[in-house]
Amino acid sequence: MLLAMNNFAYTQAASTKEATAAKQADKQAAFIGGGTTLLDIMKANIEQHTLLIDINRLSLLGIENGASGLRIGALERMSDVGEHPQVVQNYPVISQSLLASASPQLRNMASMGGNLLQKTRCGYYRDVAFPCNKRVPGSGCPAQTGDNRNLAIFGTSPSCIATHASDLAVALVALEAKLTLENPKGATRTVPLADFYKLPGSTPHIETHLQPGELITAITVPAAAHARKSHYLKVRDRASYAYALVSAAVGLDVQGGTIRSARVALGGVGTVPWRVPAVEKALVGKAPTEDNFRAAAALAVRDASPREHNKFKVELAQRTLVRALLEVVA
């Protein structure tokens, strides 16, 4: 395993159109925002890009909170969004998920769009000496019977059990956020984040539904009572700067002692951010009690398929979920 520094070309895009066109023209090109994932991946020789298209000059900024919801430019930095008063107040789960991510230095660099596309921390993916279907399709998945303590129990396949690493994505999936994507023709489309990610199946190297040249330009989050009363809880091996063993993003709208709506997603356990509609359905109409939370949380892990070293996540996921729900009604 080497630290590689392969040659690449670098260009600064002046417009979204210029950026997407350049990307479409070169299959080996990559957009670079904060670069906090990309440079690691390139140095580890996991991806070899011949062209980096710097998108930092594009005007994909803005954190706007309106009656219908929140709109965040894709190039906003994690720290700016995480500390934004409107986000803190109206979307605490988003703020908390951001501030529980990485380190302050990384959060100051990393962009929101880039965060959603960050690569898994699976140790087999990160070391080119190992086989890995995500990195080299068809080469195998040693994680299935190897070091899988940190890996997924939901959405896995015989090809891949790599955990999706983003905290932010878990919060956004819970709140039914949407992405605005712009293609090289200048056309935009809107995709629910939950539909943006692909399960690994037999093609774990294809992680999203992004089309060639498409760029994430904005994130929108609908306003909702359950967004204002929301919480992100992350359990990890150390107090800061560690990926989630399990995390839970929850939002509840409780009125008159009854849960009117609930949003629940789990992190650190899925090959994609793992929303659990069964739990949400079970919570609605119930009183926000620990017993009810517990009963609902049990539904979250019905489909779990743990491996040798991550069985604990089945239990920990339920407990994390219950604790997050208790925090939000506390």
Partner: peptide, 10 residues
């Protein structure tokens, strides 16, 4: 790793 005798978190 038990099969490859190679570190997975280096």
């Amino acid at each position: 790793d038990p099969h490859f005798s190679r570190y997975t978190n280096a």
